[in-house]
């Protein structure tokens, strides 16, 4: 059964319609990739799924339960179940690496710091930052900060991890360390929805890939279909341009 379902979702910034009838589902333990040109609405989907933007129409279901975006309690519940990692990491600049990872579980969820701390340290070790737990974000490279952000998301024990162009702001030589971390999560069976421009990576890691343009899902299929034998003209154009580089 699909764990996360978007059913005919539409959304707008003011009068500008940015999502127009989106249907996407992510199965339990599945990784789905979202690709498409800038402004196609990929990141907007993640904003809807984290309650930062209210959809105008359609339904989001998590584990079969529909989310009512008019009820703050249901948005809070959605945010408990889906964690997001941002393009710009968005680490709290005033907190150390360990504090960044621990603050939401302890202060928001009210868990005891002594219970959370081993989990946080374990996650930071897993993303390869065991020796940086007392550093501040501005003392780390972009790749290191992004790995902290991933650990911060994971420490909330989300059912779904949303990744929003997590390598787009990184220097080229730092991209692979972050991709390795995500690859590890996929192997562990994490349910993920990934927006990315790293086509090779999306192809390798995703069970299914959605190509988006102008707020619509143009084509949804296996990586092999999307990248090697796209059915739609738009997809062929886009993939053709990307792969030529």
């Amino acid at each position: 059964m699909a764990h996360l379902e978007l059913d005919n979702i539409s959304a707008a910034y003011g009068k500008l319609r940015v999502l127009d009838g989106i249907d996407i589902s992510v199965g339990s333990g599945e990784t789905v990739g979202l690709i498409g040109p800038s402004g196609s609405g990929k990141s907007t989907i993640l904003r809807v799924l984290t309650g930062l933007l209210k959809p105008e129409a359609g339904q989001v279901r998590v584990g079969g339960e529909p989310i009512n975006f008019d009820k703050p309690a249901e948005i809070r519940r959605l945010r408990d179940r889906a964690a997001i990692v941002f393009q710009q990491y968005n680490l709290f600049q005033n907190l150390t690496v360990l504090e960044n990872v621990m603050i939401a579980p302890t202060k928001v969820r009210g868990r005891k710091p002594r219970d959370v701390r081993p989990e946080a340290e374990h996650l930071l070790a897993k993303v390869g930052l065991a020796d940086k737990i007392n550093s501040y974000p501005d003392q780390l490279s972009g790749g290191q900060q992004q790995r902290v952000a991933i650990a911060r998301g994971l420490c909330l024990k989300p059912e779904i991890l949303l990744l929003d162009e997590v390598t787009a702001a990184l220097d080229p030589e730092l991209v692979s360390e972050v991709l390795d971390t995500i690859r590890g999560l996929a192997e562990d069976g994490m349910t993920m929805l990934i927006v990315s421009h790293e086509m090779g990576f999306i192809r390798e890691i995703s069970a299914r890939v959605a190509f988006m343009a102008d707020g619509k899902v143009v084509e949804l299929g296996s990586p092999a279909q999307i990248f090697d034998a796209p059915e739609k003209e738009r997809t062929r154009d886009f993939v053709g341009k990307i792969l030529r580089h």
């Binding site: 309650g51 930062l52 945010r79 408990d80 964690a83 709290f92 600049q93 202060k107």
Partner: peptide, 25 residues
Amino acid sequence: PNQWHAAETMNFTLLQTIRYVVLPQ
């Protein structure tokens, strides 16, 4: 704003966001 957004998506209340994230900065 990205500091506010990050806190919001992690379910911080307004007061928690201000106390733990925004005022210290």
